[in-house]
């Protein structure tokens, strides 16, 4: 019992010692000195993205050609032919939209 009380008293003193905040001595101008050491942030500018522009143009030309070939070959209007035409058309439309304006919403660093 006595030992338990001694432990409790010691625990309380330990906690008080832990809660005691040490005195800090911060050098004058510390914040300014640290801030002066960080690198300058690079300026940002908005400009159009140019991701593989030539590749997209070539892809569009190939798609158009593919559509023409598919149209010539699939005279019977089979389901596979129609599906293929739709897929190629969708890809063409997507590329056209991308080249047309969507890519202008991207931002690059100078």
């Amino acid at each position: 019992m006595h030992e338990q009380r001694m432990n409790d008293v010691l625990e309380e003193r330990v906690v008080q010692a832990l809660e005691r905040v040490p005195e800090v001595r911060i050098p004058v101008g510390f914040a300014a000195r640290v801030a002066g050491q960080v690198p300058e942030r690079r300026a940002f500018a908005v400009r159009p993205a140019r991701y593989g522009l030539m590749t997209m143009r070539i892809s569009m030309a190939v798609l158009v050609l593919a559509l023409v070939v598919v149209a010539m070959l699939t005279t019977e209007r089979s389901i596979y032919g129609v599906a293929l035409e739709w897929v190629l058309c969708a890809e063409l439309v997507a590329l056209a939209l991308w080249l047309g304006g969507v890519r202008y919403f991207f931002v690059h660093e100078v």
Binding site: P22, R25, I26, F30, A31, V34, A35, E40, R41
Partner: peptide, 25 residues
């Protein structure tokens, strides 16, 4: 520069906490 100025404010606001934590650690 505006970014550096606001970072200086962050440093000033938290420097005491950082110093005393490092002292104890």
């Amino acid at each position: 520069m505006a970014t550096d100025f606001s970072f200086e404010e962050i440093v000033r606001e938290h420097q005491a906490m950082v110093f005393r934590t490092l002292l104890r650690l």
